[in-house]
């Protein structure tokens, strides 16, 4: 199974860098959607013989991460009439450099973790750590609420990659990870029907600073 996984994991890492460097919301949402579809595909590669349960996990991941949530985000984006991240707290080039550093650190840290027989020589662990860090970076350095939600989505994808290594042994633990998507849905609903766009006149969470010391 290993040989097909690594190229896909590299694709996931490339999408991370793309999300760190892009300013257009539509592009970043699409990137996260592709990442979700790739992850769903990987579920099928991890399993030697396909039974119903992994097929369902893969289907749910592809449907939710690849289509439903991106579509909701696109709608929220249109509803709020926001197209791009204008002034991130950390610029795009520094973000990319930080992302590269995070990936490097992930590779180093992953070396210290011993792997089970079936995962030797795979990029699973460093890719997972690096994607989590990328998501965290996007979440904390972007001002637009939608961009932050996409960051959360990427962070979640990173966790899912580690979940791939546990899928066979402990499927329940990995499956409950889908519940994280509930948060994403709540956020998007909050942006769409709640008053974040109405009362703050833009989706810039920088406006949410009345409560400061």
């Amino acid at each position: 199974m290993g040989n097909a996984l690594d190229p896909l994991l590299v694709a996931v890492l490339l999408i991370n860098f793309f999300s760190l460097g892009a300013s257009r919301l539509r592009a970043v949402i699409n990137g996260a959607a592709v990442q979700g579809i790739v992850l769903g595909g990987m579920v099928l590669l991890v399993h030697e013989q396909l039974s119903l349960r992994p097929m369902l996990v893969a289907g749910a991941a592809i449907l939710l991460k690849g289509f439903v949530i991106p579509a909701m985000l696109m709608r929220a984006m249109r509803a709020a009439a926001i197209r791009r991240e204008v002034e991130p707290l950390v610029g795009f080039i520094p973000s990319l450099l930080l992302g590269a550093a995070a990936t490097g650190l992930s590779l180093v840290f992953a070396k210290t973790l011993p792997l089970a027989e079936q995962h030797r020589g795979l990029l699973l662990i460093p890719a997972s750590l690096s994607t989590v860090l990328t998501g965290f970076l996007v979440l904390t350095t972007r001002r637009k609420a939608i961009m932050q939600v996409v960051g959360y989505l990427i962070l979640e994808n990173g966790i899912f990659i580690l979940g791939l290594s546990l899928l066979e042994a402990m499927p329940f633990l990995v499956e409950i990870g889908v519940l994280l998507d509930l948060f994403v849905c709540v956020f998007v609903l909050g942006i769409m029907i709640h008053h974040i766009s109405r009362e703050f006149s833009s989706l810039d969470t920088g406006h949410l600073t009345a409560l400061k010391e």
Binding site: I159, L162, M170, F183
Partner: peptide, 28 residues
Amino acid sequence: SLEATWKYLLVGSVGIAIALFGSFFLAY
């Protein structure tokens, strides 16, 4: 209160995601 709820959910959801990540580590 909207701002407070937004922060509560955002910070809380990241915490919960990290806790799941940690649970995966423990399981591994």
